[in-house]
Amino acid sequence: MIWASWSAFFAMGGYAFYVWGSYVMALVFIAGEVWLLLRRKRTLLQRLSLIQRLSAGEKDETAS
């Protein structure tokens, strides 16, 4: 362990704002990208399935 204590770790030798500001922003962007992408995939599949059900319903109506 190169750090004397956890508080020394969080203080980053006086550069806490710069070091944690970098890492937190990177984490926010990466987590945000993954979240947006998974949401896009989910809504896309829901929408495609809805369109399919609606068009299947139309076909049934014209058949009867």
Binding site: M1, I2, M12, G13, Y15, S22, Y23
Partner: peptide, 21 residues
């Protein structure tokens, strides 16, 4: 980056930004 790499003799802990930058 945080627990093995030592403090930089010129830049102190600020250099640890390098691991994402």
């Amino acid at each position: 980056g945080f627990f093995v790499a030592p403090t930089d003799f010129q830049q102190g802990e600020a250099y640890r930004i390098i691991f994402i930058h």
